[in-house]
Design a protein around this nucleic acid. Structure first.
Length: 489
RNA sequence: GGCGCUAUCGUCUAGGGGUUAGGACGGGUGGUUCUCAGCCAUCAAACCGGGGUUCGAAUCCCCGUAGCGCUACCA
C-alpha cells in the first residue's frame, strides 16, 4: 500500500479551537506514523463568515503546537472552477438536477411537515420536472440550485474508529451542490478536493458522520474510489455538552496566552480519545508517533479536564531546562516590567539557577514569573493571610535580630545562613519556625516556596537585609493595610 | 420527530469470556519539618438497566434507558 495522504480542513470562520487542534493532531500523528503526507486545506467556501485573520490565526495555532503540514495550505475558493465542472458533469450525467424551489417555499413546506409531526426531507418536487422545462426556466433567468440525486440503496463503510457503519439512502436528502448564486457547497467541494488531492484517509470529528454517506455517494457518482473515513469522538465541556466558548478557553492561542506549553497541550490533546495502551501518559512526540494507531482511538466523546491539563503543564515545566524557561517566561517578566537585559548576560547564570529553584512549584509560565518577582524587585505584596499569621507583634523584633545576625556574614550560602538562624533562635529561645515563616513572608511575600535558605542564597545578602528591614517597618507601622504596596510611594 | 454515535471510578482511560477490574488527574489521610501548591507513602472511588449465549459475562448478542451529534442554498 502506498503512503497515506491525509488532510486537516478547517474553515476559517473562527480561531483554531482545541477540537480542531486535536483533529489536526490525529491526522498529523497518523501521517507521521505511516510516513504519509499531511495536507492543510482551508475550507473558505463560506465567504461571508471566512476571514484572512482567521486563516492566520489557524496557521499560528498549528505552528505553535508544532503541527507542520507537508502540502498546502490550499484554499478551497481557489479550486472553485473544478467544483463547478464536477457539478456540471453530474448534471449532464443525470446524477444531479436543477431545483427551482425557493428558500421561502422550502421553509414553508418544512414547517408544515414538522407541525404535523412528520420528519422533513426535501420532497424532490423538482426532480419530476421534464428536463426541457428545467432548461427553459434556467435560460429564462429563474434562480435555481443544483441538487444531487441520491440513488436508492444502502451506503456502508468501515469507519476507522467506529467500525462498519451503514445508512439507508432513503434517509438522505437530495443535498444542494450548487447554490442559487452558483457557488459550490461544502459536500461537493470537499469530495472534489479530496479526490483531486488523492486523500486516502479522511480523519475528522464525529459531527461529520452524517456527511459521510453523502460524500461516499458523491465519490461514486464522480466515478472515484472513496477514501477511508475515520470519525473522532467529540471533546465535551464539563457539562458533557460539546466544548464551546461557554466553557472558558477553547482557542489554542488562548492557551499560549495563559502560559501553557505547546508540548503539554499536544500531549494532553493526544490522550483525549486516544490511548497508547498501558499506563503511559507523559510522552514525547516521537513516542506518540511511534505508538499511534486507530486501534487505540476510543469511540466515546471525552470531557476536557482542565485540571489534568494544568497538572501536565506543570510536569512539562519541571522537565524544561532553565535555559528554555528563561526565554519562555521573558514575555511575562517584560509585561510586569521585571525584565532586564543583564538577565541573559551578566546575571544569566544566577537567573537560570533561580528558575531551576522555582520551577518545581509552578504549573504555568505566569506562576514562574510571579515566583521570580520578589527576586527581581523589592516591589511586591505580602500575602494577606500570611501577614495575619506570621507578622505578629513580636515578629518585627525577630526579623531585625535576624537581619543583624545575617549582616555579620559576608555572603549567605545555605549552610551558614541556616546555622546563624538556628543559633539566633536558640538565643531568642524561640523555635526556628518563628523566624523562618516571617522571614519567608518578608523575603518573598508568600507563605509557600522553596527552602528559606535557598531563597536567601538566591536573593543575595544585601537584598535579604533590605527586605527584612522593610518587613519589620511594615509590621511596626501603626495601623492600616500591611502590604508592600503602601511602601512604594 | 427522523437518522446516527456512545455507555468502566467525579474526569481521562487500561483490560475484551475466569483479574483483589490496573494507571493518571482531582479528592482524603499520614509522613517529610521551615512552608507547600513540592516530594514520599497510603485510602476512598467504576463495569447504565434488563434479558439472553455460556460451566462462567464488565467483556459476546438483543432490548430498554440515558447522553451526545446531525437533521441549512454553514462547514
Amino acid at each position: 500500500m502506498s503512503a497515506p495522504r491525509v488532510r486537516f480542513a478547517p474553515s476559517p470562520t473562527g480561531y483554531l479551537h482545541v477540537g480542531g487542534a486535536r483533529t489536526a493532531l490525529f491526522n498529523w500523528l497518523y501521517a507521521r506514523r505511516e510516513k504519509g503526507v499531511f495536507i492543510l486545506r482551508i475550507e473558505d467556501t463560506d465567504q461571508a463568515r471566512s476571514s484572512k485573520e482567521m486563516v492566520e490565526a489557524i496557521l499560528e495555532g498549528l505552528r505553535w503546537l508544532g503541527i507542520g503540514h507537508d502540502e498546502g495550505p490550499y484554499f478551497q475558493t481557489a479550486l472553485r472552477g473544478e467544483h463547478e465542472r464536477a457539478a456540471l458533469r453530474l448534471l449532464e450525467a443525470g446524477r444531479a438536477y436543477r431545483c427551482f424551489c425557493t428558500a421561502e417555499a422550502l421553509d414553508a413546506r418544512r414547517q408544515a411537515a414538522e407541525a404535523n409531526g412528520r420528519a422533513w426531507k426535501y420532497d424532490r418536487a423538482c426532480l419530476a420536472l421534464p428536463p426541457g422545462d428545467a432548461d427553459r426556466r434556467a435560460a429564462a433567468g429563474e434562480p435555481w440550485v443544483m441538487r444531487f440525486r441520491v440513488p436508492e440503496g444502502v451506503t456502508e463503510y468501515d469507519d476507522l474508529v467506529h467500525g462498519p457503519t451503514r445508512f439507508q439512502n432513503s434517509d438522505i436528502e437530495d443535498l444542494v451542490l450548487l447554490r442559487s448564486d452558483g457557488s459550490p457547497t461544502y459536500n461537493l467541494s470537499c469530495v472534489v478536493d479530496d479526490r483531486s488531492m488523492r486523500i486516502t484517509h479522511v480523519i475528522r470529528g464525529d459531527d461529520h458522520i452524517s456527511n459521510t454517506p453523502k460524500q461516499i455517494l458523491l465519490h461514486a457518482a464522480l466515478e472515484a474510489e472513496p477514501p477511508r473515513f475515520g470519525h473522532l469522538p467529540l471533546i465535551l465541556g464539563e457539562d458533557k455538552k460539546r466544548l464551546s466558548k461557554r466553557h472558558g478557553a477553547v482557542s489554542v492561542i488562548e492557551y499560549r496566552k495563559n502560559g501553557y506549553l505547546p508540548e503539554a497541550l499536544f500531549n494532553f490533546l493526544a490522550l483525549l480519545g486516544w490511548s497508547p495502551g498501558g499506563d503511559r501518559e507523559i510522552m514525547t512526540v516521537a513516542e506518540m508517533v511511534e505508538a499511534f494507531s486507530f486501534q487505540g482511538v476510543g469511540s466515546r466523546s471525552a470531557v476536557f479536564d482542565h485540571d489534568k491539563l494544568l497538572w501536565m503543564n506543570g510536569e512539562y515545566l519541571k522537565r524544561r531546562q532553565a535555559a528554555d524557561l528563561a526565554g519562555l517566561v521573558r514575555p511575562w517578566l517584560e509585561s510586569e516590567g521585571l525584565w532586564s537585559a543583564d538577565l541573559e548576560d551578566a546575571r544569566k547564570a544566577w537567573f537560570l539557577a533561580l528558575l531551576d529553584l522555582l520551577k518545581e512549584r509552578c504549573r504555568l509560565l505566569p506562576d514562574l514569573a510571579g515566583a521570580a518577582r520578589p527576586f527581581l524587585t523589592e516591589r511586591f505584596d505580602y500575602d494577606p493571610a500570611g501577614v495575619e499569621k506570621h507578622f505578629t507583634a513580636g515578629a518585627a523584633g525577630r526579623l531585625i535580630a535576624l537581619r543583624d545576625a545575617l549582616a555579620a556574614l559576608p555572603s549567605l550560602d545555605e549552610g551558614s545562613s541556616e546555622a546563624v538562624l538556628r543559633d539566633l533562635a536558640g538565643r531568642l529561645d524561640v523555635k526556628a519556625a518563628a523566624l523562618i515563616h516571617p522571614a519567608r513572608l518578608a523575603l518573598t511575600g508568600r507563605t509557600v516556596g522553596p527552602s528559606l535558605f535557598a531563597v536567601m542564597a538566591a536573593m543575595g545578602r544585601d537584598g535579604v537585609l533590605r527586605r527584612l528591614e522593610r518587613a519589620a517597618r511594615v509590621i511596626e507601622a501603626p495601623a492600616g493595610p500591611r502590604d508592600a504596596a503602601q511602601e512604594r510611594g
